[in-house]
Amino acid sequence: MSNTTMQEEIKINKYDSTQLKHTVDDHLRKYLTSDANYVENHQHMDVKLSLGYLSCLFAAAATYYEWKNGFQKAKPVTLICVASYFVINFIAWVYAYFIEKQDVFVGTKDGATLKISARLARLSETYTLDFHFTDGKKKGNYTLESSFGKWFNEDGVLVTSVLEADVKSAIERSTISKEQ
């Protein structure tokens, strides 16, 4: 029995695809880091948090400057800070859309890297997880497509054992070596 299955049950609204996706993504990360012993790479989160904090610093600087100098004198500084805020948030969007893409997990174990990307079509209950495994000269890919109905029971409770079995099988299939 895995560590994650000993936790209390996870119950959500089974008719909300966003909740279904986020619940699966969160449990996937938890399973991979605790039971499968992968070390998660937080680069995407670090970049987005850094950009968010930087944009907040510009907002705080504009507020402080205006508080010290008055509204009329602070207009040029406020304009620069507001423009910078929007530019930084645009950079964060570009990073998320073009670099992070749909990655839900990137981790390493014994020098190998596992990257999992997710796709959920609008108004669909089929969730697609793409597993990309890299270990030196070896590469492997596997796509797992499943219905949320397989991973959640009628009450909206996540059946962790079924999800974990599917993920474990997908990892094994993606790690089958394919020479570059």
Rank of each mutant, 00 (worst) to 15 (best):
Y31I: 09
I80V: 12
S84V: 07
R29M: 13
Y38G: 00
K68P: 08
K139R: 12
L49H: 05
K75S: 05
D110L: 02
E125Q: 09
A92C: 12
A62L: 10
A83L: 14
R29N: 08
V87F: 01
S17T: 15
A36K: 12
D16V: 13
L144W: 04
K48T: 13
A96G: 07
I91R: 00
S84G: 14
L49E: 02
A96M: 05
Y65S: 08
V106E: 11
K115Y: 10
R119A: 10
N69R: 09
L20T: 00
W67P: 06
G136I: 15
G111M: 13
G111L: 03
V94R: 04
S55N: 12
I116V: 13
V47M: 03
W67K: 15
V104F: 04
Y142A: 11
R29H: 00
L20K: 13
L20Y: 02
A121I: 06
K30N: 12
H27Y: 11
L49W: 03
A96H: 03
L129N: 07
E125T: 07
D135Y: 08
R122C: 08
F86A: 00
S17F: 05
T23M: 07
A83K: 04
Q43V: 12
N13F: 02
N37G: 11
V87S: 01
E145Q: 13
F58N: 15
L144E: 05
Q43I: 11
G140F: 06
K139V: 11
V106G: 06
K14D: 03
R119V: 00
A112P: 12
T78F: 13
A59I: 03
D46F: 02
W93L: 15
S34A: 12
V94P: 01
T134S: 02
K73W: 14
E125L: 07
Y31H: 11
W67I: 10
L114S: 12
K138H: 14
S17E: 09
A83R: 03
A83P: 02
H22G: 14
I99T: 10
L20W: 01
Y64L: 07
Y97N: 07
F90H: 04
D16C: 14
F133V: 03
Y15M: 14
N69H: 10
N89P: 01
H44D: 14
N37A: 14
V87Y: 00
D26M: 10
F58Y: 14
E145G: 06
I116L: 08
V82L: 13
E66V: 11
Q102T: 04
L49Y: 09
G70F: 12
A61F: 14
H27P: 01
D110P: 02
V82N: 07
R122S: 15
F105Y: 11
Y65T: 13
V39Q: 15
N13W: 03
I88D: 02
Y95R: 05
E100W: 10
S50A: 12
N141L: 04
Y127N: 05
V87W: 02
R29Q: 13
L51K: 01
L129T: 00
I91Y: 09
N141G: 08
Q102S: 05
S34K: 14
L49A: 09
D46C: 10
F131E: 00
I116Q: 04
A36R: 09
